[in-house]
Simulated assay, not measured.
Amino acid sequence: MIIKGFCHPPLSSERREAELDCSQTGQVTLRCGEHVIMASVAELQISPPLGALPASIGFADGWQFKAGLDYELAEWVRHNTIQPQRWVHRLERNWLAIVASVALVVVLGLSVYRYGIPAASHALTRLLPQAVPVYLGEHVLETLDEHMLSPSQLEAQEQWQIQDRFALLQDNLPPLPFELNIVFRSWPHGPNAFALSDGTVVVLDSLVEMATTPAELDSILLHEVGHVYHQHVMESVVQSALISVAAALIVGDSSGMADMLTSTGVFVASSGYSRDAEREADQFAAEQMLKNYGTTEPMAAMFNRFMEHYGDSELPEWLQSHPELEQRIQALK
């Protein structure tokens, strides 16, 4: 049996006409111009056809042969390779097997996204040395101070009063992974407060001005402490890193398109995770408000004030970084 096709010289993509003589049992002869190569079947590197890719024969010195008519070489390969490769090749051409495999990959991917990445992030966060979240928190605060935030305009006495009252609240808190530290800043884009990975809680002047009672301000501060308690900041960082790596591996390169897909995937996924984090922080704050004030009404009042200030978001819920404020108020009730 002589199979006509083409060959590639060693370490070259040059394509030359060739023929493979398979008439002798256990031995083949490759003829490519003036080159004649004889080898036993045991010495060959036989690559069975993979899906739509043709079969190929590799020789010990680097020459490679592919048939002009793939079925001829594929038939010879089937008779000169071990049996398991035959059913693998059949699966590669079976549409039902392909569809089932794709469905399985999708289910596994969604399961990893929904359960695997959060679980891995939760575990990895608690394995990190304490120096990592401390460094990250300090670096983030420096960056915010440089580009976004301004020094607080609150009087020093008012800051001391808030810090002293918050220090008393800490006596009733469960053990925290980091020592809490409150800092005050000014920001022109609305009332807010946020926690950093090292236990720092940044309180904006506008939030202090929005609160009409100490309990209302404390409820938001306790909410931020809930983020510290559950280490949501570091979990979000680890989650984003894992999703970025997964997206880069799927795309397979570092082009601009890959960066865009990676950034989009991180944004969408992180927005979903942060909704769960906000609910956990709400629950933590509500428990502490009941313990210290016997009610969650001050917290609900602040949420109502936030809703009046920011208005109803026009974004769909799945793209919002926080749950709907109305849902959070109902949960408090």
Rank of each mutant, 00 (worst) to 15 (best):
residue 2 I to V: 14
residue 7 C to K: 05
residue 8 H to G: 02
residue 14 E to Y: 13
residue 17 E to C: 06
residue 19 E to Y: 13
residue 22 C to W: 11
residue 22 C to A: 10
residue 22 C to F: 07
residue 27 Q to A: 11
residue 28 V to G: 04
residue 30 L to F: 05
residue 33 G to K: 01
residue 34 E to I: 09
residue 57 I to V: 15
residue 62 G to N: 08
residue 62 G to M: 04
residue 65 F to I: 08
residue 67 A to N: 11
residue 67 A to D: 02
residue 69 L to T: 08
residue 72 E to Y: 03
residue 78 R to M: 07
residue 86 R to T: 07
residue 102 V to W: 09
residue 106 V to E: 09
residue 133 P to C: 06
residue 134 V to G: 00
residue 137 G to T: 04
residue 139 H to R: 13
residue 151 P to L: 08
residue 151 P to E: 09
residue 151 P to R: 07
residue 152 S to K: 04
residue 160 W to R: 11
residue 171 D to H: 12
residue 173 L to P: 01
residue 176 L to F: 03
residue 177 P to E: 09
residue 189 H to Q: 12
residue 189 H to V: 02
residue 199 G to D: 10
residue 199 G to W: 01
residue 204 L to W: 01
residue 206 S to K: 11
residue 218 D to V: 04
residue 219 S to E: 12
residue 229 Y to M: 00
residue 231 Q to P: 02
residue 231 Q to R: 13
residue 232 H to T: 10
residue 232 H to F: 02
residue 233 V to W: 01
residue 234 M to F: 01
residue 235 E to T: 12
residue 236 S to K: 09
residue 237 V to H: 01
residue 240 S to T: 05
residue 247 A to Y: 03
residue 249 L to W: 08
residue 252 G to L: 07
residue 254 S to R: 14
residue 263 S to R: 14
residue 264 T to V: 15
residue 265 G to Q: 06
residue 269 A to C: 07
residue 273 Y to F: 15
residue 275 R to G: 02
residue 278 E to Q: 11
residue 282 D to E: 11
residue 284 F to D: 01
residue 286 A to N: 06
residue 288 Q to K: 10
residue 292 N to T: 15
residue 292 N to F: 06
residue 299 M to D: 05
residue 300 A to P: 04
residue 305 R to F: 00
residue 312 D to R: 08
residue 312 D to F: 00
residue 312 D to M: 09
residue 314 E to H: 08
residue 316 P to S: 07
residue 317 E to W: 03
residue 324 E to W: 02
residue 326 E to H: 06
